[in-house]
Every structure is written in C-alpha cells, then in structure tokens.
Amino acid sequence: MSNYAGAADTTAGAANPNMNASEIDSHQRAVSYTCGDCDQDVQLRRGEPIRCRNCGHRVLYKKRTNRMVQFEAR
C-alpha cells in the first residue's frame, strides 16, 4: 500500500511538472473517506498515505457522491 501511495505521488509530479503553487493547492482539496475498521471520517489529500488517522487501518471506503439520480417510482 505504501508503494501505491508513493507511485501516486510520482505520477502526480510527472504529469504536472510545471504546475504553480496555487494550482497545486486547488488540486489538494481534501476528500473524505470512511475507515473500514473504526468507521471514522478520514480527510485525505493527494499524496498522503492511505491510512486512517484514528486507528491506522489501511482500508478506506469512498463515500457516495451527492450527485442527483432520478428514478421513476414504479
């Protein structure tokens, strides 16, 4: 898993070699995940190790988006 985090870091750097500071910031918005073990909210930024801050568990779940889906009540 730590390998994966490292790889993500390098690809990010490789893809945007000439990125200025403000652009990097906007890309570094924290995304919140749910810990697979303790169910806590985990805020992760790009390049951070994938690990729960609370219990150290390495499995995190992505949350459902707030995007609207339309259904027919049939």
Partner: peptide, 10 residues
C-alpha cells in the same frame, strides 16, 4: 409520487 430525485441514499 412518480418521480424521485435522490441526492443521497446511504
């Protein structure tokens, strides 16, 4: 009710 717009359903 005929149309349902789901913003969040966990």
């Amino acid at each position: 009710i005929e149309d349902v717009f789901i913003y969040q359903n966990t």
